[in-house]
Design a binder for these strands. Structure first.
Lengths: 117, 117
DNA sequence: TCCTTATTTAACCTGCGGGTTAAGAGACCG
DNA sequence: CGGTCTCTTAACCCGCAGGTTAAATAAGGA
């Protein structure tokens, strides 16, 4: 649906939101913890998380008084497929990418450093 | 540069602009011809083309009084690569992922066969 | 129960994105 | 030159995106 693509791309157009996605790539996080490294109010981050949720890029589950944010990478697939319709710029060698993943998989558990973009 | 990603994703967030890109996928076009199928003014389309140009997604070359618009799919590459970091693959060591990308980047352009699915 | 932590809602400000119409600037053609 | 086609600039409108502070809601913990 074209509306979905609108939302996904619009969500990705903000550097704060991309940074949030990168953080969630490492682990699920509570709203407060997501907000911590940013120099804006918690309310603003909460709104960003709302945008990401509306776009389907993350999901939020409330446990107790804490709301956990989880990456939903499937939502990127449609956008990715749309872009690949342009063919010529095929992003990465997929075979090499898979080999890379296999070699990296054992390390998955320990968290990577914060992603300064 | 994160600014570039901002512009690229923001440009892609508009359905009119995506439609324009799809049209240009088939052939280079003059501004007037790009505008023809849309139900908005030529000025509006001209602005959209300006946004796409600023994002590097297209280039415009003036020949005579006609300005030709050409798709520049390379600009999509960075965005596509960024998205590829998420995909269906769960937590990955980001540092290693970036190292991987750097090693792969030089090869990206050549040999990029269309991704038939 | 009272206090604190976690998060959202409400109300608001400001700037920019996307559209309009009208006018201007260039390039071709008779 | 005069007219016409192509495209941009200028001025404007409107709504929404992204931020703020202050207050409300919800869930633990002492």
């Amino acid at each position: 649906m074209t509306k979905d693509l609108d939302q996904v791309f619009a969500a990705l157009a903000d550097p704060t939101r991309r940074a949030i996605l990168a953080m969630l790539l490492e682990d699920d996080m509570a709203v407060t913890d997501v907000a911590e490294p940013f120099e804006m109010s918690l309310v603003a981050i909460s709104k960003h998380l709302g945008v990401l949720t509306a776009a389907g890029l993350i999901s939020q589950e409330k446990r107790g008084r804490v709301k956990w944010c989880k990456l939903e990478p499937d939502a990127l697939r449609d956008a990715s497929i749309w872009m690949q319709g342009f063919g010529q710029f095929e992003p990465v060698n997929l075979e090499a990418f898979e080999r890379f993943l296999e070699s990296e998989l054992p390390d998955v558990v320990e968290g990577a450093a914060p992603h300064a973009e």
